[in-house]
Computed example of a mutant assay.
Amino acid sequence: MAANRYNPATHPWNPPMNDGVHFQSRLPLAWQTESKQSPFEAARFLDVLGAIEHVGDDTPDPRDAKLDLQLVWLARLLTPALPPSVEARIGIEHAVWFQAQPLPSGARGWVGFSPSDTLPFLLSLPAQIIACEPSGSGGHRVAARWIIEDQMLREALERMVFRHHREQIRRKREAGL
């Protein structure tokens, strides 16, 4: 089999790095050589995002609604332009995405992505490239593992991934009914 053809055994969307808990989406994402925020900032952003995107029966307090709107405006000021959207899989241990240029295996940097349309903010998480393969579309399928040492950030990422994972399952069930 040619190196640029699909091989399920080595395809980065499949094992051995299948997180189990992950979500797939088309979202703004880019590899970065420097961090755009501290681990504390990134963790707090994920916590606030979780609170804003919480879908419940309770009506939000008008003060919370004002604060939410201010946060949206601040996110747009801090991230005036997002990278192009790409197909990606974000898991609790790995990220996989498609891009035009190859990245060297072993490279360390940050995966910058915006996990929400609600708060368009570019989150930067430390990662290491573990695979980069040509894809059939002329680009490259890149796989990276998270190298998050900050426990607060790791837990915030896991909560965000679980939330998106559950939402995708819910949407699939509704579509199947």
Rank of each mutant, 00 (worst) to 15 (best):
M1S: 13
A2P: 11
R5W: 15
R5T: 14
N7A: 10
T10Y: 04
P12G: 04
P12H: 00
N14W: 11
P16Q: 02
M17A: 12
M17W: 10
G20S: 03
G20D: 07
V21W: 04
V21M: 13
F23K: 04
S25A: 15
R26E: 04
T33L: 07
E41H: 09
E41G: 06
A42G: 13
R44S: 13
G50N: 05
G50D: 06
G50C: 05
D57E: 12
T59E: 15
T59Y: 10
D61T: 15
R63K: 13
R63D: 09
W73L: 15
A75E: 01
R76N: 04
P80Q: 01
P80C: 12
E87C: 08
R89T: 03
F98M: 07
Q99E: 15
Q101I: 10
P102W: 07
L103T: 01
L103R: 09
P104L: 05
R108N: 02
W110Y: 15
W110F: 03
F113N: 10
L119W: 00
L119F: 02
P120Q: 14
F121D: 01
F121C: 05
P126G: 03
P126L: 07
Q128C: 03
Q128A: 12
I129Y: 09
A131H: 02
G136I: 08
S137H: 11
G139I: 04
A144E: 08
A144Y: 14
R145M: 11
W146M: 04
I147Q: 10
Q151P: 05
M152L: 07
M152Q: 05
V161N: 03
F162R: 05
F162G: 01
R166F: 13
E167R: 12
K172H: 12
A175E: 04
